[in-house]
């Protein structure tokens, strides 16, 4: 059974004369452990698709099953519960600036029951170590470089061992070298945990990490990028 199964999904913004279709009958299936890159021009609906799959946006047409849960017409509480099984990586790192790297990563663990403060710090510390930040556990985001912040963000998305990682342009604000490093760290750790990744990007330099690449144009999946 696929981890993500999207059938004939349509989504539009606005109403009446201002109505604009973002997704027009999208079909997409992603198997467990697959790494899929979704690419396409600006405004093609990539981010909309990602937010619907992640339960951040309510959609009403078609079918979106994520981890066996139907997202179409789902309650807010269902979507909140689903998000706890998904790790998000944003274009901006979106770390909490009042917290240290360790505390930021712990935020993804504090939702889980049965972990003591000690457990959380241990797991988060190990995760930060595996993204190469063992010397920066107690630094706040202001004291980190852009690449380091995005690594903390990767650690935060993976630390709770989610089933799915949804990443939106994770390399957009990084230079080539840092961008390559981030996606390769992400790939390595996802493989270790058996995590499925759906990654939206403009960045053709990172297409090689994917098992499969899809091109989204004008709200429809039109094939693979060339």
């Amino acid at each position: 059974m696929p981890v993500i199964s999207v059938k004939n999904l349509s989504f539009s913004y606005g109403t009446g004369a201002l109505k604009r279709d973002a997704l027009k009958g999208v079909d997409l299936e992603i198997e467990k452990g697959e790494i899929v890159i979704l690419t396409g021009p600006s405004g093609s609906g990539k981010t909309t698709l990602l937010t619907v799959i992640g339960g951040l946006r309510a959609a009403f047409d078609g079918s979106v099953e994520v981890l066996g849960q139907q997202m179409i017409g789902a309650e807010e509480s269902t979507r909140v519960a689903l998000r706890q099984h998904i790790g998000f990586i944003f274009q901006q790192h979106n770390l909490l600036k009042s917290l240290t790297s360790l505390q930021n990563v712990c935020m993804a663990l504090e939702l889980r029951d049965g972990l003591s403060e000690y457990d959380r710090q241990k797991v988060a510390g190990e995760m930060l170590k595996s993204v190469g930040l063992s010397d920066f556990l107690h630094k706040k985001p202001d004291q980190l470089s852009g690449g380091q912040k995005q690594r903390v963000s990767v650690a935060r998305s993976l630390v709770a061992r989610p089933d799915i990682i949804l990443a939106d342009e994770p390399t957009a604000s990084l230079d080539k070298q840092n961008g390559q490093e981030i996606v390769h760290i992400l790939k390595r750790l996802a493989r270790e945990q058996g995590t499925t990744i759906l990654l939206v990007t403009h960045d053709y330099r990172i297409l090689d990490v994917a098992d499969r690449s899809l091109l989204l144009e004008d709200g429809e999946i039109t094939g693979t990028p060339t």
Binding site: L56, V80, A81, Q84, H85, L96, M107, L111
Partner: peptide, 15 residues
């Protein structure tokens, strides 16, 4: 000022 951070927490699954 923290709206981004609160939205991030919601994305992490915080109710």
């Amino acid at each position: 000022n923290h709206l981004n951070e609160y939205a991030t927490l919601k994305a992490l699954g915080y109710p």
